[in-house]
Simulated assay, not measured.
Amino acid sequence: MKVLIIDDEQKARDVLQLLIAQLCKSIKEVITADCLADGVDLIKRHKPQIVFLDIEMPVHSGLEIVDFFKGEKMDFHIIFTTAYNKYAIDAFKISAIDYLLKPIADNELIAAVNKAESLIKQDNYSAKLEQLKKAFNQLALNKIALEVPKGISFVSVDDIIFFEADGAYTKVYLKNGKQELITKNLKHFTEQLKDNNLFYKPHRSYFINLKFMDRFVKEDGHYIILSNGFSVPIARDKREAFQKLVEMIF
């Protein structure tokens, strides 16, 4: 783990660096700066996970650090170090994870670093989850998740011929000839695929992929024959509109 110490006093930087070396074995690299402006430059170049930040410094107070990151993400954890406890409330207003009074006690330094490490792990976990979420969102553009009895099957929507309602369940008929019984009702899939123009609901019990429509039959109540040989009825109130659409397009 990499940390940065920002303090205008050389002795204070040296003492803290020595304490870190003795007490915090997880910290492998320590860099230092004697003013806030130089410290911000080091933060942006070296990306430390923790910044030990003095508050009372010439030119810029440590509390002004947020002014240097307007519109930018502060992806590091701040531990304020100061000889005065009057700044504690202001420090925590800018989300400092701890506030150490000088001279810094060993146990308080260890506790502050442990707290920071815990938060860093949480941040890393959240970042990994976010990356995974993005990957799944990309996957969802082309695939659909089918909750089968022993897990989840990810199927390309282009491989689904049709859905058939079966009470509280749904049968899914696939291009490879397989059928899956899913523990979701038909409405779940019609909602999920409502923006996919290739899927059409000709009847309250069926939701079909028009890509697999082989024939439209206008006798015996009107029905559609799909590429797997199944016949799907067209509801009475949809027959005329469907027929006109077919004639208009084909």
Rank of each mutant, 00 (worst) to 15 (best):
P103G: 09
K175M: 10
L16P: 04
N137V: 05
P103L: 13
K47Y: 13
G71W: 06
N137F: 10
L139G: 00
F68A: 00
V3C: 14
Y206R: 00
R13V: 11
C24K: 00
M57Y: 04
I20P: 01
E164F: 03
L129H: 08
I20Y: 02
N176C: 12
K128N: 13
D98V: 08
Q49W: 03
T170E: 12
S205A: 10
A135M: 14
V217E: 06
Q179H: 02
A165L: 00
E130I: 02
F69H: 08
G177I: 06
P103V: 12
Y84M: 06
K184Q: 15
A145M: 12
I31H: 06
F207S: 04
K187R: 11
L245S: 14
I94G: 11
N209L: 04
E29H: 08
L198F: 14
R236G: 02
D195G: 14
H46M: 10
A105P: 00
V59W: 10
L63I: 04
L53Y: 13
I89L: 15
I65Y: 03
L210S: 12
M248A: 05
Q17Y: 05
K134R: 15
L174Q: 01
K25D: 12
K244E: 02
E219S: 12
L63H: 09
T190N: 02
Y99N: 09
V157G: 02
L210N: 15
H222M: 02
K2M: 11
L42R: 14
Y84C: 05
L139A: 08
L19I: 04
K93V: 07
L109M: 03
N209M: 03
T81I: 13
F212G: 03
K25W: 10
S156M: 06
H188D: 02
D106A: 08
I89A: 15
V157F: 03
N142C: 05
N142M: 11
D41R: 14
H46W: 12
P202V: 06
Y84R: 07
K44R: 15
